[in-house]
Amino acid sequence: MAATSFASHSVLRRALIRAFASSPAPPCGISKKFSRCNTLFSLPLSGSLSSSAAGICQLAVPQAIKGDVDGLLREVGDKNTNEAVKQIVELAKRASSRQEVLHTDFLTPPILKESIVVLEKLTDVKAVAQGGYPQAERCRLSVGHPQELKSDPDIVAALSITGNFGFQPCSHGDFLGSILGTGIVREKLGDILLQGEKGAQILIVPELVDFITSTLDKVGNVPVTCRKIPLLALEYKPPRTQTFKTVEPSLRVDAIASAGFKISRTKLVDLIRSGDVRVNWTTVTKGTTTMKTGDIVSVSGKGRLKIGEINPTKKGKFVVELIRYL
């Protein structure tokens, strides 16, 4: 399989999808509870990275390139992010050596940022990030030899989800939960753009468009209709934010998030224990995690906030600027 061309992979993949078009088993990118699909699509047929505990799956790559990958990685401070970047670098080098263009799934901003920093050091690799619109937060990376990657591949699709949300408004979490409830994994889904009473627009991998349009019929308690739309039809507005400052004795996540979301420290600790608190899209398990400028803290059901400027006081405390997304 290692010697099979990318074109052959694509042909095989399309054949498998056609074979399963009438089968109850969903296409690639569906949750692990659909074991038949995951068994058949566990090979890198599209050259893309699938989900794993670290967010990126382990791909078989030539032994010759493994020795120098660690030297390209800079310290990112997060083990999962570091491992994910390493896998992307290996994928990029494999694509370059084979004169192919391969694609990742949607990446979180920290992984995307660190990957681009490392890939820029490789002279034989070109990387193109696409999220569907210029301000996209979650993006896919296309990697390959500069001679092969001459134009932006068509790897992001857009869907419009409409319904009568006038009397039953739905949040970002409502849309995300309903979409993931169909069985797809988070890495196959990009940004979700809320449109108030009209519904939302979402970015997704193209191969799951038909699956979502035929499967997603409700968000919350609101019946919905899904249809594919051109990327140029996306309606994006910068998120509304509220900026304020707090003085804290430490930069621990339980202290900062408690102030940012205006909930008690005890409640925040309980949320951490239940796995509902994430820093830079990674679940934290300890309230002692130290925050720094630029970090993103998200709490399930509460939203997210960004850590702005941090200044120490003469009394040993910290003045922290918090940017709350509304």
Results as ranks from 00 to 15, higher is better:
102 L>I: 00
122 L>D: 03
120 E>Y: 01
161 I>A: 03
89 V>I: 12
142 S>Y: 04
87 Q>E: 14
107 L>D: 02
141 L>E: 09
114 E>N: 13
114 E>V: 01
88 I>V: 15
117 V>A: 13
126 K>R: 15
156 V>T: 06
134 P>F: 13
86 K>L: 02
93 K>N: 05
156 V>E: 03
131 G>I: 07
88 I>K: 11
153 P>H: 03
89 V>A: 14
107 L>A: 12
160 S>A: 10
87 Q>Y: 07
150 K>V: 13
141 L>Q: 05
101 V>G: 03
97 S>V: 00
140 R>E: 06
152 D>V: 15
118 V>H: 06
123 T>E: 12
151 S>Q: 10
101 V>I: 13
149 L>H: 03
142 S>V: 04
111 I>W: 00
87 Q>F: 09
146 P>F: 04
97 S>H: 14
94 R>L: 15
146 P>I: 00
118 V>I: 14
86 K>Y: 11
90 E>M: 15
105 D>I: 01
94 R>I: 06
136 A>L: 11
92 A>G: 00
116 I>A: 09
89 V>L: 02
120 E>D: 15
102 L>E: 05
125 V>R: 00
97 S>R: 12
128 V>P: 07
159 L>T: 02
123 T>R: 13
154 D>E: 14
156 V>C: 05
95 A>V: 06
93 K>A: 02
90 E>W: 02
110 P>C: 12
155 I>F: 09
87 Q>W: 12
101 V>P: 05
148 E>G: 06
132 G>Y: 04
100 E>T: 07
85 V>G: 05
154 D>R: 07
158 A>C: 02
89 V>Q: 02
156 V>N: 06
110 P>D: 10
84 A>W: 10
119 L>F: 11
136 A>Q: 14
87 Q>D: 01
95 A>G: 03
89 V>N: 04
86 K>T: 10
120 E>V: 01
128 V>A: 01
156 V>H: 10
150 K>N: 06
115 S>T: 04
122 L>G: 04
141 L>W: 02
147 Q>H: 11
96 S>T: 06
153 P>K: 10
93 K>V: 05
102 L>G: 03
126 K>S: 09
130 Q>G: 13
127 A>H: 03
103 H>Y: 13
